[in-house]
Design a protein around this nucleic acid. Structure first.
Lengths: 186, 186
DNA sequence: TATTATATGAACCGATCGGTACATAAATGC
DNA sequence: GCATTTATGTACCGATCGGTTCATATAATA
């Protein structure tokens, strides 16, 4: 069982799920749009839910890699934290932008005990740890609280960029973040 | 055509859609759980989408009424803006809390041109106007910017409360909001 | 080259999707 | 009391849902 087909399926499924939604995308249509037969799909994944879990794991990897690489280019921790919102602004300006895959997953699987919901929560947890480390490196008295506040602004900006049809929320969030960061010891 | 059955349907549909999701809830199950026959449902609404639109309009009314009544109890505009996050904390602590209905609607109907998505966006717009007025009354130099920042924190807190399984985000958002509000002329 | 193990796709499964036809029950006008 | 309109429920529609059966194509092993 060569893994290429599997990877190809997960990658394409990610795009379609992100664009159309999870429940709205049937396995038949997934098969039609990817050119991969249903038999093969169910050979690699026992159920649609397991495919979605694999999609979320891939998205988590790709998104955090992208975000922290972009942030890392900013230099000092303080600047990196602010750069998060510049990265968001770029993302929002992307033609295909349709909110955060994990917020969407949690919306469609609202039961917190559902594995898909739990997987989405895991992404937010991993993201938090990395931001908290940066906040600590930036000299925050309460790195946890600062990281939580910045991520609140981030998720709010994502939702607003999608729902408000605007691309500006990233700048608003950055301005608010700058105020919060200004309370740090210089 | 007495409107009682129609209102009863919209009210019950709201609860079920909120708990289970839009795509995940079929019209058959809606009929079974409400005790209202499908014929009657489709007499009042030409399609499922139109029922959802009515649900969102009701939710918009109820939510904004509830929120601004709770905020109004706080007294001065400055205190009212902060009280928004106390109201959120209460909401998050509710057993049935499952995020924001409009964020969920936008997630399930990601195309901005879809009427349901547009209806959800309208709620956010109406909410913004009311918060902006309060921000102006509180003496903000840039009431628009302050309102946008506070709503960023609000939506971020909602999403985080749902996805992170925590109830604390409201307090985090309130703390951040207090910092932003502290920049106002005393 | 014959054999064997695996990957693949068409066709199909019962259940459910959003939506409708039609026959009946109830309320209204006369 | 009778006719007429309106609201309701049962049963059903084709399409699609997630998932499976089974026969074939392909590739590696002997």
């Amino acid at each position: 069982m060569r893994p290429s087909k599997r990877d190809e399926l997960v990658r394409k499924a990610l795009d379609i799920f992100y664009r159309e939604g999870f429940h709205a995308t049937g396995m038949d249509r997934l098969s039609a749009e990817t050119g991969i037969s249903k038999t093969t799909m169910f050979k690699h994944f026992r159920s649609k839910d397991e495919l979605i879990l694999a999609v979320l794991r891939l998205r988590d990897q790709e998104f955090r890699n992208w975000l922290f690489r972009r942030m890392g280019e900013a230099g000092a921790p303080h600047a990196q934290l602010l750069a998060m919102f510049d990265a968001l602004a770029e993302w929002f300006a992307t033609p295909g932008f349709r909110s955060c895959m994990f917020i969407k997953a949690a919306s469609e699987y609202p039961d917190p005990d559902h594995p898909i919901h739990a997987q989405a929560a895991e992404h937010k947890r991993l993201l938090f740890r990395q931001v908290r480390e940066l906040a600590a490196a930036a000299g925050a008295a309460d790195a946890d609280a600062l990281a939580r506040a910045l991520l609140l602004l981030k998720d709010g900006a994502i939702v607003t960029a999608h729902l408000g049809h605007e691309r500006a929320p990233a700048a608003d969030a950055k301005a608010a973040a700058a105020v919060l960061l200004a309370t740090l010891p210089a």
